[in-house]
Design a binder for these strands. Structure first.
Lengths: 241, 241
DNA sequence: CGGTAAATTTAGGTATGCCGAAATTCTGGA
DNA sequence: TCCAGAATTTCGGCATACCTAAATTTACCG
């Protein structure tokens, strides 16, 4: 059987970063991936993104018509998932074996994912016991590039009264992760949406981390970063009729 | 106290590679480090080395007069030893924790040494129990850049009859490492130089790996790659009066 | 001491990936 | 329908690090 490899040119760090970022921007939400969203996420100029997209299209990693959003091809998706696998296995290793805190791992993994070998990743996977999710709850793709997203939604999408278990927290913002860790909020915490007061304002929630419930008020960014698996409706405090 | 950092510009992979290579070329032998030796070791053109040496001189990492060999400054030596420390700790980790064989680790470490953080290296060091040598017997510099070279000499420098314990094997040639591993020759093996027959020809040796002595005949490259700590003269088979 | 071969440096050019500024295309409201 | 503002692409440039080929310098030998 043929070894599963990636097309020539896809060994460039930049190519890998762009492809992985395109995937990441559409992993949890389905908004189209535009040049400017990519530029913002990668901290580069729009013109740099334009150039790179042309290159990615030539490599067969993305489909793109000028002035339109970009989409990964099957080939691009395979490469992206390979990078995501690397990133998440590395994060898991840093936490489990090297004692990193979960807010420290993102940047280190971001660099290492481009430089470790396939062998390294495979041995890491085995040593970690073939984990299915990283420390932030993000699922780890299989070596073949299969991934199953948990049935979770961001906290800000829940109506008043809904309750759920935290299954994922975005690893993008270390400060947010530090705050949550300090408050002992993590994967498995049970959160109930109390209300949004005033309408459109901060989200009032009650969170049980195992040591009794406490109340928190979350801004938009925070509420979008915490992903919750529904465990049913909590009666009695809905403000919506 | 001020954090020990390196000069601006020394975060380039290439700069790090050149500086580390200059150090390596003079770590065990004292021959001058010329452009062409550097070019050969780095697999780049002589002209590339010339350009980079000018840059290194500007950065204060090397002292250099045109058409003369190059030498590290104190600053350059500090950077080189930091890279050597990274390389050797990574090799030790790959063998001890990820089950790499000693002939597999060099290339992987070569890439990773440029991308892991200081934090990563410090935590690795602690996890490995602050090892003093890597799997090939190369000493690991301290975080402060101190290193003590063992009192060893390459096998090809011994006279007939000398005996010693193997304390270091160059990690540059994976093929050589595989051969030695297959023959069960490693650090700690006891080797006795029998003779050089014909004069200047292959080196005849007797090696005891613990399971009884066997005889081997080594070519020049091999004999230069195995480093031995003298344990006294073995009488009776010297061909030199 | 001169001349040549070897080592080294300089000169000119390539590829990647980034930038700001200018041109182009799209989009929504009047 | 038209047009202004936003988004995107194109254009000309910069930095790094590499190359080959052409100078230059060194070192050695007759």
């Amino acid at each position: 059987m043929a070894a599963r490899t990636h097309p020539p040119g896809s060994d460039s760090s930049s190519v890998q970063d762009y492809v992985k970022t395109i995937y990441s921007l559409s992993e949890w939400r389905t908004e189209p991936v535009t040049s400017s969203r990519l530029a913002a996420r990668l901290s580069v100029a729009n013109s740099s993104v334009s150039e790179m997209i042309r290159k990615l299209a030539e490599l067969g990693l993305v489909a793109h018509k000028p002035y339109r959003p970009v989409e990964l091809t099957a080939e691009g998706r395979r490469l992206a998932l390979a990078m995501v696998r690397r990133h998440r296995l590395l994060e898991t290793f840093l936490v489990q074996d090297l004692g990193y805190r979960w807010d420290e791992v993102h940047d280190e993994a971001e660099v290492l994912e481009h430089t470790v070998s396939d062998t390294f990743i495979d041995r890491l996977d085995a040593r970690l016991g073939f984990p299915s999710a990283d420390p932030h709850g993000d699922p780890i793709p299989t070596p073949e590039g299969a991934i199953t997203l948990p049935d979770a939604r961001p906290l800000d999408s829940f109506d008043d009264g809904h309750a759920g278990r935290v299954t994922r927290i975005s690893d993008e913002d270390p400060q947010l992760l530090r705050f949550l860790a300090a408050e002992d909020i993590g994967l498995g915490s049970v959160v109930t949406v109390l209300a949004r007061i005033p309408f459109g304002g901060p989200l009032q929630t009650r969170i049980d981390t195992g040591a009794g419930p406490r109340d928190f008020s979350f801004g938009d960014e925070l509420a979008r970063s915490i992903w919750v698996e529904s465990v049913g409706e909590h009666a009695g405090c809905s403000l919506v009729p």
